[in-house]
Write a protein that binds this DNA or RNA. Structure first.
Length: 897
RNA sequence: GGGCAAUUAGCUCAGCUGGUUAGAGCGCCACAUUGACAUUGUGGAGGUCACAAGUUCGAAUCUUGUAUUGCCCACCA
């Protein structure tokens, strides 16, 4: 017999191990002819801990994959981890520094540092693996991958070289976002803007006045730019020069006219610093101007700063202003200037734009053959497109569906503004740029082309390799190790790639739509000619109860999924994150919510326990039950619950197919608790139909399994039929139309009304415990249910024998409307408390009067009667008549008191 | 500056394409409870659906505007 309360700790690890060792996560264990269904797990960073974001992702994907598996599909979920270039390198460097090392990069050198990081990652991966298992994730561990393993490195090198040969990868001097703290470039998307109050200075510059919030960059400024149509400055000609007194003496400046200048802002004139500003850089490029570096990569001023050289920006700024002021060049300063400061998302340090020689992916070059679904402009067949165009096309033409749809708009907007992607990073941990130099020669190749060649020291942006994740994880590792094969050959002969790609659904947070999802589309369409996935399901952020972001800097706001699992169980945690969370929207999580679902899990446990006890008492082995009795032998309640069950199967199947997880979860919750436990099990306390009990419970366990796999699997082992195997591999039920019985279900609800009325009578009229009440029921149909109810009533109120009352309006209503074949006689003489009865009748009267008024008014509205659908009007009329009739009866009864 | 969303009970949220007297969970109040379950049961209180105008026989739902909040993108020297 089961324990009184469900103990997840005693169950979860054991069940998980049983699944894993049995091969239940492997698609090979199922019908080889099943339709393939694939999910690539977004690889958690190999830096450490599982957080709630991962937990949500794992729960959602596990539901998708379990449902697909039970539907008979060949379901594959590929797990893995990400080497997370910058993030990981930072963590290890910090650890080494904490351990007393001053500059780990210098002291260890490239090879040794990489070895240290690799060692750290190995340990960390194990932690993550264990935590992913704790969530119940049914992924195929035999196919686990890592973004930095040899096979994936091979893919990276192959794609890089191909892109380079196609002219899609180029090297050039561009303004990049330089992070002086981390000593590397970061991409546009890795920058955050923080609003900050600063000072806006206006200086005299020759005959002009110029504004700036960054005087420290102004040393090398020797161009003044203004709008060609600005009348204030029409006397100055483009290209004319003048001398101006400036920070460190006089400079020769040139006038430039450019349309990008906003005449409204400041004085309408600015000087430019092409080395340290994207816009200035573009102006300089347009007019072929000189560019000069002012700030070094260490964030300190260079030689050009004269007396300020070697100083940090923050130190130098006030001194520079002071100097300009003493020279009489400071016109004014506005202390309340709000501006946005660029900050590195990872390192938190200020971003300094710099010109650097970097590798880029060209997103506008139209050299990739691609066939637009449905034909672009009526054309069929492949045509040359740019990466940007392909990314747009596959979503625009519905080859890839984004859920929720509104993110498609955001996606298009992002694509429209997409610039070339800077892919080189100045760190050591990551895929090294496969380019070799020897004098003037530059060769793209994975291996050294020969003597005297040196490899580019940079590594690739971590998203470059994760962008290949859906397919690089399906590549056969042995084939990938064979250097005589081309990437195309490898893909062609990799069975997993052939079977499981494109993947079915990509589930991830909306915050990495651009970082990752968009880049997977870019990289995969280019490299494989296939889309990476058919559906993108985006989940929202989990926030605190107050709607704040959970952040590491405020540990008290963090909910640790592993804590919650050990406290409430993985099933409860999963439900609490899924129900109430709609795609693309943030949701809030707090402990009470998780506890609520723990209660639900326990309720399910006890309901099963009850079923087992009933069987035991009747001497029936639940495992031997394998079919339902004939319909003729079923009671009304049986037929009603079977009907409700079929409807539930229909709803849940449809809900899971359309990714409506929250709604479906709620339906399962309410069926389990309200319908199964509170109605059917209560009724079963008198006369139980064991076959039906077991049948409904089994079905319910199947339907609940994707949501809460552990408890359902555990209970399944108790109630499943002997020929059934594990629940994880059980076939999803099909809806049986002949089990639907709408009439029985409606009648059953009346029965519930009757029960409610009895209970109400007991409280309202204060029936003493032990009082004998007589009842006459004529319909056999309803007697069945009521007899069994007697036990329950006894337990509740110690009423010796059962009574039904027409005092209840609800019951009178029900009786007159549906119970045409029964008569209910009541005798409750001497049992009423007249005052209480009066009060309850009056209350009912008031409610009804209000109802009648509303309804009456509506029906007197000519427009409503004329224009609303006829059935609706008739329905309303009938209801009004019914309500009025009831009112009359209540009046009579009140008069009688 | 551009875009996207949200605003419904004390709290967290449902309410799909307009149609009964607007729902659930938690919390609160009352009562009950020794045979599945106190991780429980029954009942109750609590809402001019942010505001305004419009469309309609009928609006939480559609339109427009306003306010507040959140997010994304761009960024001004």
């Amino acid at each position: 017999m089961l324990d009184k309360a469900y103990d997840p700790k005693a169950v979860e690890d054991r069940i998980y191990e049983m699944w894993e060792t049995s091969g239940a996560f492997k698609p090979e264990s199922y019908d080889p002819n099943g339709e393939p269904f694939t999910i690539s797990m977004p690889p958690p960073n190999a830096t450490g801990q599982l957080h709630l974001g991962h937990a949500v992702m794992l729960a959602l994907e596990d539901i998708f994959i379990r449902f697909a598996r039970m539907q008979g599909k060949k379901a594959l979920w590929v797990p893995g981890t990400d080497h997370a270039a910058i993030a990981t390198e930072n963590v290890v460097i910090k650890q080494l520094k904490d351990g007393g090392m001053k500059d780990p990069r210098k002291e260890l050198g490239r090879e040794k540092l990489i070895a240290k990081i690799a060692e750290f990652v190995e340990g960390s991966k194990n932690t993550i693996r264990g935590q992913v298992r704790k969530m119940g994730s049914s992924c195929d561990w035999s196919r686990e991958r890592y973004t930095f393993e040899p096979a994936l490195n091979r893919c990276v090198n192959e794609v890089f070289c191909r892109m380079k040969n196609d002219g899609l990868i180029y090297r050039g001097h561009r303004i990049v976002n330089w992070d002086p703290k981390l000593q590397t470039t970061v991409s546009d998307d890795e920058i955050e803007y923080k609003e900050e109050k600063g000072v806006f200075y206006t200086f005299k510059y020759g005959p002009f006045e110029i504004g700036t919030s960054r005087p420290e960059t102004k040393f090398g400024d020797k161009y003044v730019v203004m709008h060609p149509k600005d009348k204030r400055y029409s006397k100055f000609k483009h290209g004319e020069t003048f001398d101006a007194e400036w920070i460190n003496g006089s400079v020769r400046a040139t006038v430039i006219k450019d349309e990008c200048i906003d005449m409204e802002f400041g004085t309408g004139v600015m000087t430019i610093t092409p080395w340290h500003d994207k816009i200035d850089f573009e102006i300089a490029e347009r007019h072929g101007l000189e560019k000069e570096q002012v700030i070094g990569f260490d964030g300190k001023l260079l030689e050009i700063g004269g007396e300020f050289a070697g100083m940090k920006i923050e130190e130098a700024r006030p001194l520079i202003v002071e100097k300009l002021k003493s020279k009489g060049l400071l016109v004014k300063s506005d202390e309340n200037y709000m501006h946005n400061k660029a900050v590195s998302q990872r390192g938190g340090g200020a971003i300094e734009p710099q010109i650097k020689l970097q590798w880029f992916i060209d997103v506008n070059k139209e050299v990739v053959p691609w066939e637009v679904k449905g034909g672009r402009g009526g054309k069929k067949g492949k045509e040359m497109m740019s990466l940007k165009q392909i990314m747009h096309s596959v979503v625009h033409h519905g080859e890839i569906e984004i859920i929720p749809d509104r993110f498609s708009k955001t996606y298009f907007h992002w694509i429209d503004n997409l610039r070339d992607w800077c892919i080189s990073r100045q760190i050591w941990w990551g895929h090294r740029v496969p380019v070799w130099y020897k004098g003037e020669e530059t060769i793209a190749s994975a291996e050294s082309p020969g003597e005297g060649f040196e490899q580019d020291p940079d590594t690739l942006d971590t998203w470059f390799s994760s962008a290949m994740w859906t397919w690089s994880t399906l590549v056969d590792t042995k084939l990938a190790a064979d250097n005589s094969l081309s990437l195309e050959d490898i893909l062609k002969s990799s069975p997993d790639f052939q079977t499981f790609h494109p993947t079915s659904v990509m589930e991830t947070g909306y915050d990495i739509l651009f970082f990752w999802v968009a880049r997977m589309i870019l990289m995969t369409t280019y490299a494989t000619g296939q889309i990476p996935f058919k559906t993108v399901y985006l989940h929202g952020l989990i926030r605190t109860r107050d709607g704040a972001k959970m952040s590491k800097s405020h540990p008290e706001t963090m909910i640790d999924p592993l804590d919650m699992i050990s406290k409430y169980g993985a099933d409860a945690l999963r439900l609490s994150m899924i129900v109430g969370q709609s795609p693309g929207a943030d949701s809030r999580l707090y402990e009470e919510k998780i506890a609520g679902y723990r209660n639900f899990i326990n309720k399910l446990w006890n309901a099963s326990r009850f079923v087992l006890m009933q069987c035991e008492q009747a001497g029936i082995d639940p495992k031997s039950i394998d079919k339902l009795p004939e319909t003729a032998k079923l009671s009304l309640a049986d037929r009603a619950i079977l009907h409700a069950l079929e409807i539930l199967i229909e709803d849940v199947t449809k809900g899971l197919e359309t990714y409506a997880l929250s709604e479906t979860g709620e339906k399962l919750y309410s069926f389990t608790w309200d319908t199964f436990c509170d109605w059917y099990l209560e009724l079963s306390k008198g006369t139980a139909n064991h076959a039906v009990l077991v049948h409904v419970l089994r079905r319910l366990l199947i339907l609940l399994h994707p949501y809460c796999p552990f408890i359902t699997e555990e209970l399944w082992s108790q109630v499943s039929s002997t020929q059934d195997g594990m629940l994880i591999a059980k076939a999803w039920p099909k809806v049986k139309e002949d089990r639907k019985d709408q009439q029985a279900f409606a009648d059953f609800q009346i029965l519930i009304d009757v029960i409610t009325a009895i209970r109400k009578l007991r409280t309202d009229q204060n029936v003493e415990p032990g009082t004998e009440i007589s009842i006459t029921l004529v319909s056999k149909k309803y007697c069945e249910g009521l007899e069994s109810q007697e036990a329950h009533i006894r337990r509740l109120g110690k009423v010796v024998s059962l009574t039904i009352t027409t005092d209840s309006v609800k019951l009178a209503n029900a009786a007159s409307a549906f119970l045409t074949d029964i008569e209910i006689h009541l005798s409750l003489e001497g049992l009423f408390d007249p005052a209480k009865l009066k009060a309850s009748l009056e209350k009912e009267q008031a409610e009804l009067t209000k109802y009648v008024q509303v309804l009456g008014g509506k029906l007197q509205n000519k427009n409503f009667v004329d224009r609303a659908p006829k059935e609706l009007v008739d329905g309303e009329k009938a209801k009004l008549a019914e309500a009025e009739e009831k009112l009359v009866k209540i009046k009579e009864r009140l008069a009688a008191i």
